[in-house]
């Protein structure tokens, strides 16, 4: 009896360290933050906390005051997630389906950047993309593609590019796992059932993606500002045309019906997991906008960091943190509703 009772206790014992950890370092700090977010005062003046004061103004005021930072976070985080997906899906697909005996090496290369500090890698990008860096040296001085006063650092694109680079492995690994799991016989079955190349659909989808990507690139770089208002529409049109042509060709020849109808739908649970894993850290990031961006491209994370560490304004910082958390939770909830994963995997009887 004593043995039986102790056996029943084993799962709880195994969970205990984790639960204790979460209690100490997640639940208690969050309660503390919640209290701060409704308080008044700064570190210097001291805080007046609930129940003496319930300062809802911290929330309502922050939303309007920092709406620009919020929209930066959403747009940059969202764009980085989409870019990660566009880069990561073909990569994960290639490793899973064509990797052969190089699979493990390729996966290792995907996570290899993690062996260097996050900060060091971001600073490296600052140097690579900087005004004296190799990218501009080629594009500006050798190819004369951009005007002399052109710079990449400070543009929204640099921030989005940095975020995309940092979180790409978070996208690739879950995608790889779900694509790898797709039964190859299902693809053969689809081909057997007349699923051939996806010419027209692939061309349209590819053209749309290509045009979008090149327009986003131009706008993100703030290219229009350098060449003048008059020339901007023509440049956008040219970018759209080039993007559509390249994307259309790629789509028409590389995308098959069996991919659209079988492989991709079956990998959607992985797409769901990967995009959440990418979007959450990307939207809360403050290192990339600080090192690669300008004062105009600051995200919510920068404001929170500044309020906490520089201005010691804990109430506003805590309120912003909670607002960000609530926003992310809401977004994930809507996303899960939209992409309900159970429906996709076939469910169980």
């Amino acid at each position: 009896m004593a043995l039986l009772r102790s056996r029943r206790a084993i799962p709880y014992l195994l969970m205990a360290p984790g639960l204790l950890w979460l209690l100490l370092f997640f639940v208690i700090p969050n309660v503390q933050m919640l209290v701060f977010s409704l308080s008044e005062g700064t570190l210097r003046t001291g805080f007046t906390t609930p129940p003496d004061v319930w300062d809802i103004e911290n929330y309502t005021g922050s939303i309007s005051k920092f709406s620009g930072n919020f929209s930066n976070s959403i747009v940059y985080g969202g764009l980085a997630t989409i870019l990660c997906f566009l880069i990561g899906y073909p990569l994960a697909y290639a490793i899973a389906f064509k990797g052969g005996r190089w699979k493990n090496l390729l996966l290792f290369l995907v996570i290899a950047p993690f062996f260097t500090s996050f900060l060091i890698r971001t600073i490296s990008w600052k140097i690579i993309l900087g005004n004296d860096g190799p990218v501009l040296a080629i594009a500006r001085d050798v190819l004369h593609l951009v005007p002399a006063n052109f710079s990449i650092i400070g543009s929204p694109l640099a921030v989005v590019g940095g975020l995309t680079y940092q979180f790409l492995p978070f996208m690739v690994l879950p995608l790889y796992v779900s694509i790898e799991k797709v039964d190859r016989r299902l693809i053969e079955a689809a081909q057997d059932l007349y699923a051939g190349p996806w010419r027209r659909g692939g061309m349209i989808a590819g053209a749309l993606f290509g045009a979008f990507a090149l327009i986003a690139l131009q706008v993100g770089l703030g290219y229009g500002a350098f060449i003048g208002e008059d020339a901007a529409p023509a440049a956008v049109a040219a970018a759209a045309l080039v993007g559509a042509l390249v994307g259309g060709l790629v789509g028409a020849f590389l995308i098959s019906q069996s991919f659209i109808r079988v492989t991709f739908p079956l990998s959607l649970p992985g797409v769901f997991a990967a995009s959440i894993l990418t979007f959450i850290p990307a939207i809360g990031d403050y290192v990339n906008p600080q090192l690669l961006g300008s004062p105009k491209t600051q995200m919510v994370g920068n404001v929170i960091q500044g309020r906490f560490l520089d201005q010691n304004d804990y109430p506003i910082a805590a309120a912003l943190a909670f607002l960000l958390m609530a926003g992310i939770l809401l977004a994930i909830f809507l996303y899960a509703k939209l992409l309900g994963t159970e429906e996709l995997t076939g469910g169980t009887a």
């Binding site: 016989r185 299902l186 057997d192 995997t345």
Partner: peptide
């Protein structure tokens, strides 16, 4: 000819039904 251009269909060993 690739499978999708042949007027032939297959019943696969483990059915290979599309689970989604």
């Amino acid at each position: 000819l690739p499978p999708y251009k042949r007027n032939v269909n297959t019943v696969f060993q483990n059915y290979a039904l599309f689970p989604h």
